[in-house]
Structures are given as C-alpha cells and as structure tokens.
Design a protein around this nucleic acid. Structure first.
Lengths: 230, 230
DNA sequence: TGACATTAGTGTCTCTCACACACTAATATA
DNA sequence: TATATTAGTGTGTGAGAGACACTAATGTCA
C-alpha cells in the first residue's frame, strides 16, 4: 500500500480486456473486434475498454462482455494483469484480462449498432492481433485447458441440453487431442452430475440421448471438494 | 482495448502489494508493515506501493520485496488484481497483488532505515489488517496451498541444505495437516529431485541426512510435464 | 555406563483410478 | 435391403495414493 514512498503518478490508465470463448462445431472460437482507430487501426483485438468511475473490475468485464455478445450470466474469470510499460504506444496502460465462456446457442453477437466489426474466429486460425493481445490469448487458452482438466467450466460452453458426444467434442476441441469414448463416459457417469432428459436427438446415424447438467448434484460434489477429473 | 468508448479517467492509481511468506520452525509466516500514516494509521498492512514510470508490474513487486527483505532472486508470482472502488478510502486504487517465497535463512528484514516497523507474523496469529489486505492474504494462502500440491514451489522456503523432516514440516505447516512420513519420503524418492550431500545434521535425536534440491533433475522432469504430487 | 528421550529412517498391502482396446445398436438414405 | 453414420457399452492391466509400526542413531541424565 502507498507509504511515504514517492508520490502517485497520474498519466496512467487501467483497462479491462476480455477473451470471450465459444464453441462452433469442432473448433474453439474467440470473439475479436476490428479496430477502427489508431493505434493498430484495422487490426483485430480483444474486446475491452477503460474501467469507469465506481465500477469494479469484474463489473467492467461483464459490461464489455454484454456489449459485445448480449449475454450476461456467463462464466467469467480474471486471468492475469499485464502491465508492460511499452504495451500500449499511447502511454502507460495496465490491463486486467478476463476470460469468459459463452454457450454457442446464447450468443447473439450484439447487433453491430456499433460501427466496429466483430466476429468469431477459430482460435487456431485467428488473424494477427493488436497490442499484446496475442500474448493474452495464448495465456487464456492455456488457462482454459488447465481448468478443463480439474473443473467443470467446460459445461458453460454447451447449450442446456446436449449429448455426450457434444461434450466429448468440446473437450477435444479445447484440449487439442482425442479422448477415449469409453473412458470419457465412464468418468462422467461416475461423477453423476448429468441427468438424462426424456428426449433424444437425431441428426445422422443413431439418435443420441440428451442430458442436462445437474447443478444440484454438482454442488454436492463441490462441498466435498471433488472436482472434474479429465 | 480503448475504443471510441467514453474517455479515460485520470484520478486513478495502480499499486502493487506483495504477500511475502517465510517459514519459521513449524509455522508459516508473513511479513507485515505497521502503517505510519492515515488511513489505517497504526494498523498492519502488506508491503506495497505505487508503480513507477517505466516500471513493469513484476519489477515493482520485486522492488518492494527487496526494499523490505533485502533479497532479490526469490520465487514471485502474480496473485490477483483487486479493484473494488471502495477498497481505498483515498480514492480509486487498483492493486495488483503478488506473493513471494523467501527462505528463512536469507531474509534479513532489511535494516529498518525506514521508520516503519516491519516484522514477521505467524499467519495463524496475524493482527487485523488495513484495507482489503485480509482478503488478499487469505487468497494468497489458498493459492500457496494449491501450488504446493502440484509444483515444487515449497522448496523455495528452505535453505540450500535441508533434511527430509524439514521439508515435511514445511508442507505440514502450509497445508495445515499432518502427512505420513513414509508416503512423503517415497514420493520424494520417486521424483529423484533431491540429492543427498556428504553431511548430516544433529540437533536432538538421531542425526539426519542433509539434501540439496537438484535443479538439474528437476528441469528434466518439467520438460516431460511432470509435477510435484503432494 | 546404562536407561531413556528424541528424532531419523525404512516396506508392504490394498484400493482406486488412468489408460488401452473393439464390437454391437439404432437410425437415415440410396 | 444393403450401406453409411453416429451412439453406446465392459474388461484387464499397471501406477500411484493412502494406511500402517517398528528399528536405528544420537544426546542426556540419573
């Protein structure tokens, strides 16, 4: 905390940047915005902006998220704070990065009343990014992968009802490696946090059982400190 | 990133606070500073201060660390960024919290040329803290516990040479629960990252073999993605 | 000098979980 | 009715986690 050190500085800004993830088919997607102003005009960047008066950091991140996607109650987690003095050519800008997980069916890509272009990119094929956003994105993907292995955050990326194959594809997309179907399903069954609903879904091939995530059962597990072991 | 949003704000500060851990005997310790100025005059607080011009966040944390303890090359990790608008009565102050691990034998508690009182407190018995520092400390302890279970950060808290009992006491102090001696030693042996040195240490009872941490062997493990499984 | 207190050091068994692995079932369509 | 496509199911093996109790080496004190 401030002591009788040297005085505070004033030419300094704090922003919040949000890495918004979603899933499309078999690929992990990230929402990017094409910058309309210098610096990095025309380059793509993570959505973000200055924090406002009286606004908590997480509130600011939620606001950015809602502005871009129209959704509100999604998974959001603080990622890391980047403060390299050179990271923004305009001056000293410290940014607090968050990442968010948005279910594919809920995202409406907030009508671009905003003049800026915003679109989803497959993480594996995204364009060059402005500022140090490449770094932030890489870090977010890494964190997401780790979290996936010992929590259930991944469920946030699926619609309310989904098949076990959906879930497995999700995990494979994020982890970037194939998983064994039987082992995957066995672990899931062991956890007992999915409940089958009275509906099936047929697209091609044999129809698949639909499931819902059972927050009830899950909270029981959390109480006992059990986590999601993929 | 800044867009054509509303303009930046100027009455805003960024500080860095550092939770500095050490081990004394059987208890986890944290370094606190008694505040000499309002707000919270007379209260104890985490060491910290404003970031300086052209100074990276981590540099700022290292500087605070060195000012208080005189040590430089220690384990330091960014913890979390706290930005509640009410957290500092003087105005909007966003703080980036770090935590550091300092070996007991290296800490010299930098001669208090500084007028401020600084001392180690057992985490379990620390006094009330200023600002939201109680919250930060709690979070740091939690993080340290987690890290301890899947990395080797804990070694940073011991002197270069130590006994297996020292190491076990360290783990028990941080985790707050007893560990089985044989299981503990077996896992350690399996990792193969400790090398015995030609010396033993006797205080009371049977003299104990001294060990050193083998960074060589450890880096081999890291390459393969193996981690410390306590 | 021998009993005692104190700390260091050592193996085995059981159970759970991770991982490898291949076939049958249900539907749509040609 | 054959074929393509996706869903669904069980077992065996190996590694590691956790429970558990005695012997060894030293210092101290009667």
């Amino acid at each position: 905390m401030p002591s009788a050190d040297r005085g505070p500085r004033t030419d300094l800004q704090v922003t919040v940047d949000v890495v918004i993830f979603s899933i499309a088919g078999t690929a992990l997607q990230v929402l990017l915005i094409e910058r309309g102003l210098p610096p990095f005009e025309g380059r793509w960047a993570l959505p973000g902006g200055f924090i406002r008066e009286g606004e908590d950091l997480e509130q600011a991140a939620l606001r950015e998220l809602e502005e871009e996607t129209g959704v509100r109650d999604v998974y959001l987690e603080q990622l890391y704070t980047f403060g390299d003095p050179q990271r923004d050519p305009r001056g000293r800008v410290v940014t607090v990065a968050y990442y968010a997980l948005v279910a594919a069916d809920r995202t409406t890509l907030a009508a671009s009343t905003d003049a800026r272009a915003a679109r989803w990119w497959a993480v594996a094929e995204h364009p060059p990014l402005a500022f140090d956003h490449e770094h932030i994105l890489t870090y977010a993907v890494e964190r997401l992968r780790n979290k996936l292995e010992y929590t259930t955050v991944g469920f946030q990326l699926l619609p309310r009802r989904f098949t076990l194959s959906d879930l497995q594809r999700l995990y494979e997309a994020i982890l970037g490696r194939p998983l064994d179907k039987r082992n995957f399903r066995r672990k899931l069954a062991l956890l007992g946090i999915l409940k089958p609903v009275k509906a099936r879904r047929a697209e091609r091939g044999r129809p698949a059982q639909l499931y819902e995530f059972s927050a009830r059962e899950f909270s029981k597990l959390k109480d006992v400190g059990i986590i999601f072991p993929f």
